[in-house]
Simulated assay, not measured.
Amino acid sequence: MMGILPFLLGLLSMVPAGAQVFTLSEMYGTITSPNFPEPYPKDAEIFWNISVPEGFQIRLYFLHFDLEPSYLCEYDYVKVEADGEELAVFCGHEDSDTEHVPGEHVISSPRSSLSVSFRSDFSNEERFSGFKSHYSAVDVDECRDSNDEDLACDHFCHNYIGGFYCSCRYGYLLHSDNRTCRVECRDNVFSERSGVLSSSNFPNPYPKSSDCQYRIELEDGFLITLEFDDPFDIEDHPDVICPYDFVKIQAGTNEYGPFCGDRSPGRIQTESNKVQMFFHSDNSGENIGWKMSYTSYGSLCPAPVKPLNGQLDPVQIQYSFKDHVLVSCEPGYRLIQDGEELEHFEIKCQKDGSWSSSDPLCKKMESWRNS
């Protein structure tokens, strides 16, 4: 209702001195020319300012109309206005090239206020009977009729008498603006050695007004590599670096980004075992977002030396942190490590690039027992 007072004050400022003004705030009513159904008087000027609650429109139609005809309605007329715009001017008692009567035409206000004015000049020789009209407040279906994208619901719109409300699909939360659907995405922790991350709803448009945080946390000794895929599509600006939506990456003391636009950041070697990704979106845009895979590798260990008369399993070209190698001996030989006789022995590649133990020996069973 706050918009009605400025509307009324604006109309009053345009009312000529001596004119009659009526303010109507009922949800329906009837407006007639003075003395109706008797002929209306000369030199009359009357304004009816109609206002109903927000969320409603006003519809006006005429039940009877009989005014003095004149070229372009310069003598007697009825004028209908709303929001400073002239919606209709009527005069006469039948349509002509220069005069129009309302007939069965229904006039609808754009919003919740409407002004009707009647004017008669200094003569009424044929004693015209005037007009009778009816107005009523009609609920606006904002879900169907709204042309303002800023007021439209992101997902679902529900109309009720006098207003509407928005709701979101499962997994989304309604933003404080009561229009936008956002996601809660701040507790995503990844601890596997490889994985895939993406913006919510990818490859469909990502949610608006969201702040997402993704954490990749691996054991000390692993280093993480990020690889962004195509397509990469984040809202950008031609003159300012990523003012709307963006991806930022924090890896140890290194920062990467912000990234936006349609050019993928590609591969990023973070040189860290912990990575935090931040993704921010504002309240507009229909971009599809991003998808990224990550892998990790550990410190490299030198190839272990196979003991004489022994075997290694597995045999690889390269060994890195967390790799295990099983050492065993050929038949007739016994595995000796630090003076102990073993069936087999396992060594591990450590985060500093060294093996967990020195190489064991394989000795013949008889020579070992005799020693």
Rank of each mutant, 00 (worst) to 15 (best):
Y61C: 09
G84H: 10
P37A: 01
G18N: 08
V52C: 04
V101M: 12
E54W: 05
Q57F: 13
L9W: 07
G130I: 00
V21F: 01
S25A: 11
D121R: 06
Y77Q: 07
P102F: 08
S115F: 01
I50Q: 03
I4N: 14
T98A: 05
S113E: 13
S129H: 13
E94Q: 15
H105M: 12
K42Y: 05
L11V: 15
Q57Y: 13
F118N: 08
L72F: 14
A82N: 04
G84M: 11
F128Q: 03
E26S: 14
R119G: 09
C91G: 03
P53D: 04
E54G: 01
L67Y: 06
L11H: 14
F36I: 01
L114D: 06
V106G: 05
P37L: 01
G18Q: 07
F65R: 04
S120G: 08
Y71S: 14
S70C: 08
E26F: 04
F128R: 13
E81Y: 03
N35P: 00
Q57I: 14
S108R: 11
V116C: 07
E126Q: 14
Y71D: 14
L63P: 00
S123L: 15
P69E: 09
Q20C: 07
S109Y: 02
E45P: 01
H64S: 14
A19S: 15
P69A: 11
F122Q: 12
S129F: 11
D121V: 09
L67S: 04
V78M: 07
W48P: 02
V52T: 03
V52L: 07
E74K: 09
E38M: 08
L9G: 06
E126H: 12
D66E: 15
P34R: 10
D95P: 03
Q20E: 13
E74N: 10
T32P: 09
L5G: 00
I107L: 09
S113V: 12
P37K: 00
H105K: 14
E38K: 10
L72A: 10
S112Q: 12
E125K: 08
V21C: 01
S117Y: 07
V116I: 15
L11Y: 09
T98Q: 08
H100Q: 15
G10E: 09
T30Y: 01
A17D: 13
V89C: 05
C91N: 05
D97P: 01
S25Q: 10
L60R: 07
P37D: 01
K42D: 15
F90S: 02
R119V: 14
H64E: 10
L67F: 06
F128M: 04
P53G: 05
F22Q: 13
M27G: 12
V89G: 01
Y75D: 09
S115A: 11
A17K: 15
V106E: 13
T30A: 05
F118T: 07
I50D: 00
D76G: 03
R59T: 00
E68S: 02
S51T: 15
S112C: 09
L114V: 02
L12T: 02
F47R: 01
